[in-house]
Nucleic acid binder design. Sequence first.
DNA 1: GTTGACCCTCACGCGACGTGAGGCCTTAGA
DNA 2: TCTAAGGCCTCACGTCGCGTGAGGGTCAAC
Lengths: 255, 255
Amino acid sequence: MALTVSQVARLAKVSVRALHHYDELGLLCPSGRSEAGYRLYTQADLERLQQVLFFRELAFPLEEIRRILTDSRFDLRAALLMQRQLLTERASRLDALRHAVDAALDALDQGTTMDREKMFEAFGDFDPSKYEAEVKERWGDTEAYKESARRTSRYKKEDWSTLKAEGDQLMKALGEHLGAGHAPTEPKVLALAEAHRQYISKWFYPCSYVIHRGLGEMYVSDSRFTENIDSVKPGLSRYLRDAFVANAERHGAES
Amino acid sequence: MALTVSQVARLAKVSVRALHHYDELGLLCPSGRSEAGYRLYTQADLERLQQVLFFRELAFPLEEIRRILTDSRFDLRAALLMQRQLLTERASRLDALRHAVDAALDALDQGTTMDREKMFEAFGDFDPSKYEAEVKERWGDTEAYKESARRTSRYKKEDWSTLKAEGDQLMKALGEHLGAGHAPTEPKVLALAEAHRQYISKWFYPCSYVIHRGLGEMYVSDSRFTENIDSVKPGLSRYLRDAFVANAERHGAES
DNA sequence: GTTGACCCTCACGCGACGTGAGGCCTTAGA
DNA sequence: TCTAAGGCCTCACGTCGCGTGAGGGTCAAC
């Protein structure tokens, strides 16, 4: 019942070369080899390949996919729920792009010039896959992770829009405080840090002060987050970290 | 009013390096340079960048984007309509992927094994961007191209599903004739070739016998099409070409 | 004048394969 | 049994679209 490499390639709509590559990487190794050295794939291999392809579709780097699938804590159901969530987010982004095209068409029809910010607002990424995978890895908080996946899997486009608007609003407000020279420990700033923690609790998972503080540390220590957040306002990631730390301290979270 | 490279990068959510790269490629060259050699971008440059990013989002290779935008026949409105269409197709595909995830979740919940074909059916590409761009380039039939873009821009998800099902059905039927050893010139096969021509006329643009014959030639001469079509049944692309040629000849199309 | 942010060109490297070379294996048909 | 076609293997160079860093010049505010 084993399949050879070309049979799998045809079935899964990937190239033979890709399957070789995945074998080399240890991402998807065939369960067996014929006496001639031919790769032989089983049903379990196919199931693993499906997971690989879902994650690949969601732009996860192959090495990261390998790590996720190899992790002893890997849970297929949780993975599928997360993948579903991320596909939903992708669809939402495609919608935004379509609206951007419509706006460009309108501008063209009316002979007007599009606002610069509006021209590009649908591009760029807040890629939740990076966020979620990192949370999972950094804190090993499987319950929080699962809760997040469970909760967001039910979100519709409108939910994602609301969620994103709310998050962007918080970031913007914090960026303005930074720009105005307010210290991250000022009450107004701490109130926003608290609002951010509650935003996470509301939309993703229960976010304790300890976790929230860790999130702030991660914003600074991981350049992917730093870059994304600092695109709102240079220095914002550090500012958030400081505010989250101060917020956690005033609520008695242990160091 | 000119913008420097970092201002544009921030606005458009791309990297400075990407903008350098696009300049090198001749894809997006700044309209000016300061005395110090700094790149200076204008509003027109921003508009071109928006087009670049739309096409990039749709996975067009950069060299191809450059060719399209540089083409004297480039029409912004037609491009936007096509981009809109392709984004719709992408959204449709995301939907299919989401259904695939749901199917995997169901199978997991019920402890069953997914059908192999179903496991992977949402993966792989019939990428219309390749098709449309090639049509535009090969035949320079701008009217047909525009008609196609105009028509399909109004299609909804259901339309795309119907369209795709119909196309797949035709391919499958032709593949079965190939498998059964029927010559491409047999009446039954020619009837399917005619149905295919009408399918194109119905869903995309008026497809003359000359154009249809050219489409068949393209299926054979361009490995991207050959591979895709031959994945249905090996040798199908050549078979289609022969059937389309014969169909055109029986309808008096000039050689 | 100094400093920090910005800019330039140059160039190596990465990830995910595509492509082709050279040669062994399998199967069906003569 | 032999042959031919299609399949498989490993090896390795190359492509595309940048990321990253080096070395050095420019600009504006203090």
